[in-house]
């Protein structure tokens, strides 16, 4: 006998495409289609629905980066393009997420350099890219414009729109056909509000990924987990304003006390486990891109995701 769990879902998670191959006019070796889920994560019984992707986060000014990563990566971090390349070739990431931390220096104005950095990363890796723009309203417009322009035809995922600043990034995404990350602070309602705001200025549902803001394990994951579950739940119940795939990045993981103050000999493992446990929980709650900063977390997560996708053995569930 087969049991039907009868959740009576009516909604489907919408699709978002990241990366464009030569066939699509871009230069990436692959392009990912996220979304499409029709049930709770891993209950789809649909072999074609994708496993979560793992993105390795890198940056172009390591001054703003965790000392743990600076130490682990050594000289690598001084060359953004080499760093991006190893993400693909050595650590096996699905995506590279580039933080333009160079723009966070006070009175930053060298917009041209932004384009150059992105170009060098596009040359160094064939993976689809997530580009994280500026953090400063004053230069947002120029930075996002430059990101959009440099990545024309590559279908970037651009970060990050928030309720307080979404117009510049949306303009760049619309002009150059990129998707964008819509981040709201750990709340299903706020996530929905931002999606409505974006829809109302013309950003299509298939160009938005929800970032529900992921608190690190022990530092907010207890709320993030449920916020993600509720977003997925509402989407499956038919709320199209929440029916976008989710991206999750627990960026505080390497700054929290447990990791920062760990015995130096154990620090890398602590960082990896912290990112790993967070990533597993986020994937189960519905995240489809998991971002990490420790290069060694990438493979751990990918191995686990492969086995989570494998529903071997008879379960008796329809």
């Amino acid at each position: 006998m087969e049991y039907d769990l009868n959740f009576s879902w009516t909604g489907t998670i919408g699709h978002v495409v990241i990366g464009a191959t030569r066939a699509d006019g871009g230069t990436r070796k692959t392009s990912y289609t996220l979304g499409g889920g029709t049930s709770l994560p891993y209950l789809d019984n649909n072999p074609s629905s994708p496993s979560p992707l793992v993105a390795l986060e890198i940056c172009d000014n390591p001054e703003f980066w965790s000392p743990i990563i600076r130490r682990f990566c050594g000289d690598l971090i001084h060359s953004t393009s080499d760093w991006a390349k190893t993400a693909e070739t050595v650590y096996g990431a699905d995506l590279v997420r580039l933080y333009l931390t160079s723009t966070r220096v006070r009175n930053f104005s060298d917009i041209v350099s932004v384009g150059k950095t992105i170009e060098s990363v596009l040359d160094a890796t064939a993976l689809p890219l997530i580009i994280e723009g500026s953090n400063e309203p004053g230069i947002d417009s120029d930075v996002f414009q430059k990101c959009g322009e440099t990545g024309q035809d590559e279908r970037f995922l651009l970060g990050t729109a928030e309720a307080s600043r979404y117009r510049s990034i949306a303009a760049a995404a619309l002009a150059y056909d990129h998707s964008l990350i819509a981040q709201s602070p750990i709340d299903v309602n706020l996530a929905k509000q931002l999606n409505i705001l974006l829809r109302e200025i013309g950003v299509q549902q298939d160009h938005i990924m929800i970032d529900p803001y992921t608190g690190a394990l022990g530092y907010g994951l207890e709320y993030s987990f449920s916020a993600m579950e509720r977003i997925r739940f509402s989407a499956l119940k038919g709320d199209t304003d929440l029916a976008m795939p989710m991206i999750c990045s627990a960026i505080d993981s390497l700054n929290i006390k447990e990791v920062r103050e760990a015995d130096p000999a154990l620090q890398d493992e602590m960082a990896m486990q912290w990112e790993f446990y967070t990533g597993i929980a986020a994937a189960v709650a519905g995240a489809e891109i998991i971002c990490v900063r420790h290069p060694k977390t990438v493979r751990m997560l990918k191995n686990a995701f492969a086995d989570m996708k494998n529903n071997a053995g008879f379960s008796g569930v329809k």
């Binding site: 891993y42 189960v284 086995d307 529903n311 379960s315």
Partner: peptide, 24 residues
């Protein structure tokens, strides 16, 4: 005795759902 992690997720979710809905 799940055969894989995916198998575990399916089985344990099914058991929880069937139990709390009092279906089984």
């Amino acid at each position: 005795c799940p055969q894989s992690l995916g198998n575990y997720i399916t089985l344990s979710t099914a058991i929880r759902q069937l139990a709390i809905s009092r279906a089984v």
